[in-house]
Design a protein around this nucleic acid. Structure first.
Lengths: 192, 192
DNA sequence: GAGGTAGCGATACCCATGGTATCGAAACTA
DNA sequence: TAGTTTCGATACCATGGGTATCGCTACCTC
């Protein structure tokens, strides 16, 4: 039994262009901004037909979400204490949002989601929830608390990006960390 | 000489429909969301022609910015200490963003501004700067520090609004205040 | 009251963009 | 070879921001 050969569906198999499309998405967003990064331009940049993009992603929003998931990858949860975990997570997401195209794309979908409940649901369940669950587990904090932290950290980073067009500088990221860390309940042994 | 009667420009004077348009803008955004609140619909809701709207505001973005300025009004800077000032300011903006239509409209323009540098400039100079200057003065904090606070507070509130479609609840606003306040340098006499 | 100016409503229009539909060709399985 | 599905190309539709035009109206000045 060669692995799951027989599981392959009939018909012409898809070519492996997802990675190319993701790269084209980020580079197009970086060059032209979110709104001018049309699906047609992204497809052209990827050397692919517009219809191919729409066959794989039902909307521009879902394309961007998948692209962001690919760009982010899993949270690197390193550190011995909860403070170190939180600190490394904040630096990680700040770095990701600072990568060329990523911040613009993130702010862009987020914006679209404001007036598109379906997209909001996708953004929340596909992008936010996995990280939320990982953080809940790693930090041992309740859901509403982790949601609050995500609002603060991601909201702050996106607001800076949206207002200035530039990612937040290291000094301000450090200030963000310094502000958030004390909000974690003291580690066992530190409190009375 | 009755005041500046002669300063009135020639031609038919504008009718006082600004307030009506602002109200129509918020109610339309509240009912349909930002994207579906088209200029044509807003004009119709206000009982005004689309051309009248575009004669007064050069773009949808500027209409929304003016509408928000009208809805926000000046920051009520009350409180004897800087902590009280900051706390009241946070509660104030949280309340405003929670008003029907206001949060959606805010998140909406903000989104548009991401890929529209001209709108970003308007948003920054017309909406953010006045409040930033007032806060710098009232809190006696440097510009970059106040900008950081604005990123944190407004970013957090908008992120919650954008992700859930609902304004932040009081308990979380209180948590936001509790997180930000310690970031103000201690008042004179409190520190060593 | 006549003439100039500018706001107003209505309407037609242009353009960009998200998204759909169609078609012939290609790639793969059975 | 028959069947299935992808691919590229293209035409197409609907929506919405923004512009332009036109006849009308309100106001000021002479």
């Amino acid at each position: 039994m060669a692995s799951t050969t027989s599981a392959r569906p009939p018909g012409r198999p898809r070519t492996g262009v997802n990675a190319v499309v993701f790269a084209a998405t980020l580079s197009t967003v970086r060059e032209l901004g979110y709104a001018r990064a049309t699906v047609e331009r992204i497809a052209a940049q990827a050397g692919v037909a517009k219809s191919t993009v729409y066959r794989r992603w039902p909307s521009k929003g879902e394309l961007i979400v998948d692209c962001l998931l690919d760009a982010f990858g899993p949270v690197p949860l390193k550190g011995d204490s909860r403070a170190e975990l939180m600190s490394s997570a904040i630096h990680w997401i700040a770095g990701k949002i600072g990568e060329p195209g990523v911040g613009d794309a993130f702010a862009g979908v987020f914006s679209d989601a404001v007036s598109d409940p379906a997209l909001r649901e996708i953004l929340s369940s596909r992008l936010q929830d996995p990280y939320r669950l990982a953080l809940q587990d790693a930090l041992d904090e309740p859901e509403n608390r982790v949601l609050f932290f995500i609002d603060v950290v991601v909201g702050t980073l996106l607001h800076r990006m949206g207002m200035t067009g530039e990612p937040m500088v290291d000094a301000d990221v450090a200030a963000l960390v310094a502000m958030v860390l004390p909000q974690l309940a003291d580690d066992p042994g530190t409190a009375g």
